[in-house]
């Protein structure tokens, strides 16, 4: 009887041995693919697709309660800056900086340049 219980316990142990699910560190989605397409066929369509991918990565990460991968806010901010959406750009750069303090030298630089772009744009108007 004791043996049977022991055996049962061993079997149970092995059965659950592989159970704990490892949560992925980051959700990168289709990042590599959309970036590749953008470089292979540069244009509005592929650029929009890559930008949508970055937005999706942020959504997925929030949904799974994981950190947004390094550089994603920064890259999205940079794309916004190129579209002259400087307010959005600044917002993303700041989020990158708070998520990853290591990025602060670069982010402060980008924030400064987005601010000066914004200023020169409004002066032109």
């Amino acid at each position: 009887m004791k043996k049977l219980v022991l055996m049962f316990l061993i079997v149970a142990f092995f059965a659950v041995g592989c159970a704990p699910k490892v949560k992925p560190m980051y959700y990168w989605g289709n990042y590599s693919q959309t970036l590749y397409s953008m470089k292979k066929n540069p244009g509005d369509k592929t650029t929009a697709a890559h930008q949508a991918c970055l937005v999706q990565i942020i959504k997925d990460s929030e949904a799974h309660n994981t950190r947004v991968p390094p550089g994603v806010y920064g890259e999205l901010g940079f794309m916004c800056m190129q579209e002259k959406k400087d307010q959005d750009a600044i917002k993303y750069f700041k989020t990158e900086e708070t998520t990853y303090p290591e990025s602060s030298v670069l982010m402060e630089k980008l924030i400064a340049s987005a601010k000066s772009d914004e200023k020169s744009d409004s002066e032109q108007k």
């Binding site: 560190m25 980051y26 990168w28 990042y31 590599s32 970036l35 991968p69 390094p70 550089g71 994603v72 920064g74 890259e75 940079f78 990853y100 290591e102 990025s103 670069l106 980008l110």
Partner: peptide, 17 residues
């Protein structure tokens, strides 16, 4: 390169930027 490097635990500056 960015994706696998971050998965090994590094902060990787946005390469495109």
């Amino acid at each position: 390169i960015a994706e696998p490097l971050t998965l090994h635990g590094y902060y990787v500056f946005p390469i495109e930027v």
